[in-house]
Design a protein around this nucleic acid. Structure first.
Lengths: 181, 181
DNA sequence: ACTAACATGTAACCCGTTACATGATTAT
DNA sequence: ATAATCATGTAACGGGTTACATGTTAGT
């Protein structure tokens, strides 16, 4: 049920089309709850049927028309009710760590390469995080309340990401020792 | 496809029954790739049909009989092939962070409670991690190669977990400020 | 003509969760 | 008796991924 609520969360302040939502997800909420455009369009239809979103077609000049969705009162209520529900602890899933259980002399260099790739991906993501932080969350103390929540999510991403980099370095060092042994 | 390979990974050194696998998952591989017993039993059947696992019934005295599975050569080959494949970067999903995007004066204390609960859960998990580390991975340098991989996975869990605690503290402090404002 | 960005969907399949179901053995 | 642990499953549902599918507009 979380995707529905993630979408509604993205609509708290602005009405958006499916396309805009799926674009925004890539640089904000999608950091913490990913979704493909196919999923988003389907979920939007369901949410509109449920009466949690309203839709209207917007004619654009110079672009194809779009269907813009907005939160209804029922939607806002459902969203708040969800926030007040209990969250079960998220089960971690990471193939790379399962692969590490298979470490042996034949695959050590491959796994080192994979960790390096993941390290690079994380560096890029951290760069994006930091850009957003500098641009929008520099003055933490004076943020409106809701933005403080978003800031905390971002701080989470940055903290976990930075320590992931540190772990990659530790792992690569250890694997280098295994390779040369 | 990763569950199949996680199961085979758990069978590298020992043949195990579905029950034993699902028990072991709770204190080892399951930290990084969770699975319910229902999923495990189904996957074991599929893997046996594929010829990647063999099965035999074992009569036990004082306990119900069990069906023990072991890796076949084809299974070992498939597992190594999987390790050598590329891993796509894991998409994070965490409801709690999405909820933080909804932070406002009405839900701030609820969210603080949720973060506290998550903090406690993580403390327990870290305690378990540390116990395992002390018991089995104290002498890192002299571990056999495969165990070094397992150690790295554990080190990942410990690092991410510890910094999660630190983030919880930061978040709780910020939320306390919002509450009293 | 072609490419990139904008815009919206359907269908099949796979994977995971939840609920349901059964039964043996040991200890209290 | 009854609870705990051991042991193995089926079925329904829901969510997510991948592949397929279509069409507009602007810029080069």
């Amino acid at each position: 049920m979380a995707l529905a609520h993630a979408i509604m969360t993205a609509l708290i302040e602005d009405d958006l089309s499916g396309y805009e939502l799926s674009r925004d997800f890539e640089t904000s909420l999608g950091f913490f709850w990913n979704a493909s455009h196919q999923q988003i369009y389907q979920e939007l239809r369901k949410l509109a049927e449920k009466g949690w979103l309203n839709k209207r077609e917007v004619n654009q000049s110079g672009k194809p028309n779009k269907i813009v969705y907005g939160l209804t009162m029922a939607g806002r209520d459902a969203l708040q009710a969800w926030v007040f529900g209990t969250t079960r602890t998220q089960a971690a899933k990471d193939e790379l760590l399962v692969k590490l259980y298979n470490l042996d002399a034949t695959n050590v260099s491959h796994l080192a390469t994979e960790i390096s790739r993941r390290r690079e991906d994380m560096m890029k993501l951290l760069y994006l995080y930091e850009t957003i932080r500098r641009r929008h969350y520099a003055d933490t103390a004076n943020l409106p309340v809701r933005r403080k929540g978003v800031y905390l999510a971002l701080a989470y991403g940055i903290s976990q990401g930075e320590h992931f980099l540190a772990w990659c370095d530790q792992a690569l060092e250890l694997l280098a020792g295994v390779e040369s042994a």
